[in-house]
Design a protein around this nucleic acid. Structure first.
Length: 144
DNA sequence: AATGCACACAACCGCGACACC
DNA sequence: TGGTGTCGCGGTTGTGTGCAT
């Protein structure tokens, strides 16, 4: 499909998956000028992307020292404990896991751990004879 | 071999916080 | 002190891929 004429004033930003060329340009720009003023990064680097998009791409994918995939048992355990402590404060949790990003942890939680926890809760609920104390077994507190 | 489904991950969106003028 | 612009975060959606039927 041939692109339509967008008109003289309106500039349409790129969306969707990043290309290798875009990655290269972003990394190159940040290497020279640093990762600050994302709006400027977006415009000056010549990428037709918004600052937000550049920031996300850099933090979650291009930044050096990023660990990707293979979350170890220790890391998983740490995530579980930190989540219990902090709740959905993914950036704080990520801060405790060197090389991991908040987005990755959030994704991991949503696809793996939330299910695990649901299953755990179910087994606990069934194993602790509900008829002895039904309210506690179903997590019902008087104040609620 | 084709199709449908579930899962994993990348990216977008909306909103609140913060900095600067 | 209020207004405006930018950033950062969390929630959500879109898309690609592998697996089962």
């Amino acid at each position: 499909m041939a692109p339509k004429n967008d008109g003289p004033t309106k500039k349409v930003m790129n969306k969707g998956a990043w290309t290798a060329e875009e990655d290269r340009r972003l990394a190159e720009y940040i290497e020279i000028h640093g990762a600050k003023r994302w709006k400027t990064v977006a415009t000056k680097s010549g990428l037709n992307r918004c600052g937000k998009s550049c920031r996300l791409r850099w933090l979650n994918y291009l930044r050096p020292n990023i660990k990707r995939g293979n979350i170890s048992d220790e890391e998983e355990d740490l995530i579980l404990r930190l989540h219990k402590l902090l709740g959905n404060r993914w950036s704080l949790i990520a801060g405790r896991l060197p090389g991991r990003t908040d987005n990755e942890i959030k994704n991991y939680w949503n696809s793996h751990l939330s299910k695990k926890i649901n299953q755990k809760e179910k087994t606990v609920a069934t194993s602790t004879a509900p008829e002895a104390n039904p309210q506690k077994a179903w997590g019902v507190e008087e104040g609620e």
